[in-house]
């Protein structure tokens, strides 16, 4: 009986949080179009999230391209299909690996950052201070951050894809004597708009999810400094799960249309 009750409580709590988060997202869209726009803060956040994540995302992308090609190369050679490596690598990177890995890394870097920053602002009453000075902390803190992640993640993904393909090319070039021209001819020959467009569109949702969950967890952070850690942690965990769910939905939707 008590087990039933606790699980009921968990479910209710979960539903409550889903509802709150939806309301939070709704508020984001309402505030998004209301003046004044915090454009300077938006640029600052874009810079922090975009430029400052580029190194991390780039290195990861490069290594993934490299390792992915190195790992699949022997098997493809066995099959006598080494000519297919460029097209195989490009499709898997552009469709899936690039977006999801970049988004996960950004969930770790940006999502936790937002969660911790807003969380500590909440517990040190900075958000309250903004509110009592008659300014709109939601607009200044949340709208700019969610917008920044939504805009920057797709760009990071594109760059990560490009760098990963370059890493893959390096392996092909050194091990298989494949020219730059041939490699990228193969890549673009095998790529289709079906690969490119949906996977780019879904990264906007990934970015939105990262910003939304991070901001939500930070903005409603409770229980002092310990709560800040919890907020950052929950933000990463929930974002990662949400990313996979979104990815799954994206794949299904893509399948319907193509």
């Amino acid at each position: 009986m008590s087990f039933f009750r606790t699980s009921m409580q968990y479910i209710l709590k979960y539903l409550e949080e889903v509802g709150e988060m939806s309301a939070f997202a709704g508020r984001f869209f309402r505030e998004l179009f209301r003046r004044p726009f915090e454009s300077r803060e938006l640029l600052r956040q874009c810079y922090n999230m975009g430029n400052k994540s580029l190194l991390l995302v780039g290195v990861t992308g490069f290594i993934i391209g490299l390792v992915f090609t190195l790992q699949s190369r022997p098997k493809m050679l066995d099959l006598g299909a080494s000519a297919w490596i460029p097209s195989m690598v490009s499709i898997s990177i552009v469709r899936e690996i690039g977006p999801i890995i970049t988004a996960l890394i950004c969930a770790g870097r940006i999502g936790s950052g937002i969660g911790a920053e807003l969380g500590s602002m909440r517990v040190t009453e900075q958000i309250d201070a903004m509110e009592v000075s008659g300014t709109n902390p939601f607009k200044y803190l949340v709208v700019t951050r969610i917008l920044a992640t939504t805009l920057m993640i797709p760009l990071l993904v594109v760059m990560s894809d490009a760098i990963a393909l370059f890493g893959s090319f390096l392996v092909e070039n050194t091990k298989g004597d494949v020219s730059f021209r041939y490699f990228f001819d193969e890549v673009f020959l095998s790529l289709d708009f079906v690969d490119l467009i949906p996977s780019t569109l879904k990264t906007f949702f990934f970015g939105f999810a990262i910003g939304l969950v991070g901001c939500y967890r930070g903005y409603y952070c409770k229980h002092g400094t310990a709560g800040v850690g919890v907020a950052a942690n929950t933000a990463v965990v929930e974002t990662s799960m949400l990313l996979f769910v979104l990815d799954f939905i994206a794949v299904m939707v893509t399948d319907i249309f193509y």
């Binding site: 975009g50 430029n51 594109v158 760059m159 490009a162 780019t200």
Partner: peptide, 26 residues
């Protein structure tokens, strides 16, 4: 900072546009 951000955005967009162009050309 804004200049670097601009560079970042332009690079990313250019890559995307280039990808769309090449795929389209093929």
């Amino acid at each position: 900072r804004n200049i670097r951000l601009g560079l970042f955005v332009i690079t990313g967009t250019a890559l995307l546009v280039a990808a769309v162009y090449f795929v389209g050309q093929k």
